[in-house]
């Protein structure tokens, strides 16, 4: 495992690089105890800067002090909006058309910036967001080894099982998937190394920059960056013959078909969905169908009850708790 301090430092540096100087100086002035656990920086036009760290949220004063009083917070103005957009887009707003349509931008290092503002429509479809007024900068932290605890449950007689990771937002779903990909790709005490295919529609899992993964996803991993999940899964099966397919946040009807297709092509699928428990997820049409037909043989439920990435429960296909597979 790499030195943790070193890794934390680099992800903060990536964030600093995209912030305009005014915001950067305030964030740098934050107490180091806050900086270490900083998760989100929220910026809204004409509103005070808000941060989310650990389990708390608060405003920040111009001097970098934490406060709960909105009036004391440093106010993000329109001028800052323009500067931030310039930095994020590398002065090339035209290159972000797809991203502005989806509502978020992924930057170097796999950090995601959610945006909101005035939506422009074209024939009823969202064409993009024109006057961006809100930013939510989510700091992606690579936590190697978080999958260590779930790895023993993912195998049955040495075979990797189709797995659905269920988790509310911000509970470490993507981080867990990334580490599973890494461990499967490197090989672990439960299995030899395998070929892994990742369809990374939001560029969050592998955090690709110009197609090259910025996160460690293992030596035997192929990444289809920014590709729609359903198409990507089929492309990878045809072109790269992966042993395991890893996909984040499935939800659209065509995703379900692709998962179904992949499972029957002899590929182990490990994917994730938003939700707080299996029952809730099963109520959604596409996922419900997959669950009822027994597409998945493992369900991992995450929560924040004991900090980000708490593993609440692991079930098998009939929703019974799973026994741990012994090392091969």
């Amino acid at each position: 495992m790499l030195d943790k301090g070193d890794k934390e430092g680099s992800s903060m540096q990536e964030i600093m690089a995209i912030l305009p100087a005014s915001v950067r100086s305030i964030i740098t002035a934050l107490p180091s105890t806050v900086l270490e656990v900083l998760e989100e920086i929220r910026l809204r036009q004409n509103q005070p800067l808000e941060i989310r760290y650990g389990q708390q949220t608060s405003y920040v004063t111009p001097a970098g002090q934490i406060t709960s009083i909105a009036r004391q917070g440093w106010v993000f103005t329109q001028d800052h909006v323009v500067k931030l957009l310039n930095q994020v887009s590398q002065h090339s707003l035209y290159a972000l058309e797809e991203e502005l349509k989806r509502g978020y931008i992924t930057v170097v290092g796999g950090h995601r910036i959610g945006i909101a503002g005035k939506v422009v429509l074209e024939r009823g479809d969202v064409k993009g967001i024109r006057d961006v007024t809100s930013f939510n900068i989510r700091i992606a932290r690579e936590k190697k080894g978080v999958a260590q605890k779930v790895m023993p449950y993912l195998f049955e007689k040495g075979n990797l099982q189709n797995t659905l990771v269920i988790s509310p937002p911000m509970c470490g779903k993507t981080t867990l998937l990334r580490d599973i990909a890494r461990q499967v790709s490197y090989g672990s005490e439960w299995s030899s190394s395998r070929k892994v295919g990742i369809v990374d529609e939001r560029s969050e899992l592998a955090g690709c920059l110009q197609g090259v993964p910025q996160r460690d996803v293992g030596p035997r991993t192929d990444v289809l960056d920014a590709c729609p999940k359903a198409i990507g899964m089929m492309m990878l099966i045809r072109s790269m013959s992966p042993d395991a397919l890893i996909v984040d946040e499935i939800g659209r009807p065509e995703d379900g078909d692709a998962v179904w297709e992949a499972i029957h092509a002899g590929v182990a699928v490990i994917c994730s969905a938003h939700g707080s428990n299996v029952e809730e997820v099963a109520r959604r049409p596409m996922l419900g169908k997959l669950i009822r037909h027994g597409a998945f043989s493992r369900y991992i439920v995450l929560s924040r009850s004991r900090g980000v990435g708490t593993i609440q429960a692991i079930y098998d296909s009939s929703l019974n708790p799973v026994k741990r597979e012994l090392p091969a």
Binding site: S89, Q90, H91, S92, Y94, A95, E97
Partner: peptide, 9 residues
């Protein structure tokens, strides 16, 4: 810009 979507720099 229009076809390559290359960043300005």
């Amino acid at each position: 810009i229009v076809y390559g979507l290359t960043p300005l720099q």
